[in-house]
């Protein structure tokens, strides 16, 4: 884990679940999950908060790789994860309530990726 900016930590995929379990046990709430596509890689940022404190954990995921769902630890992650998959095409595995890319029911596939990246 490395702090790349104030309160933003870069983590590896193996660190994801230990971090999330720790946050859950300390009663932190999930603020949001943000996905962006930067230079051929997905950047997934998980934000947690307790009181006025906030921590962001960033995971870099290759285009063909996948991330495990955290919806079994944080139920509220369902909507964020379904959204990432539908809009960015990031493969999130084992979401608890899986909408199968039908959350927004849009006609276009992965609209947030540029045409050449799809």
């Amino acid at each position: 884990m490395e702090e790349i900016q104030k309160n933003i930590y870069k983590i590896e995929q193996v660190e994801l679940f230990p971090v999330i379990m720790e946050k859950k046990n300390d009663m932190w709430r999930l603020v949001q999950i943000c996905c962006s596509f930067v230079e051929g890689n997905y950047e997934v940022t998980y934000s947690f908060a307790t009181g006025y404190e906030i921590s962001n954990y960033r995971l870099i995921v290759g285009k063909e790789e996948s991330v495990p769902s955290i919806s079994r630890v944080y139920k509220s992650a369902i909507l964020y994860e379904n959204e990432m998959r539908e809009l960015f095409g990031l493969n999130v595995e084992f979401i608890k309530v899986d909408y199968h890319d039908k959350l927004y029911r849009i006609n276009e596939e992965t609209p947030f990726l540029k045409k050449e990246d799809r």
Binding site: L87, Y99, K102, L103, Y104, R105, I106, P111, F112
Partner: peptide, 12 residues
Amino acid sequence: PSIGYVHRGLES
């Protein structure tokens, strides 16, 4: 819930 009736995609 099933949402998406007002989805415009304005972030894009």
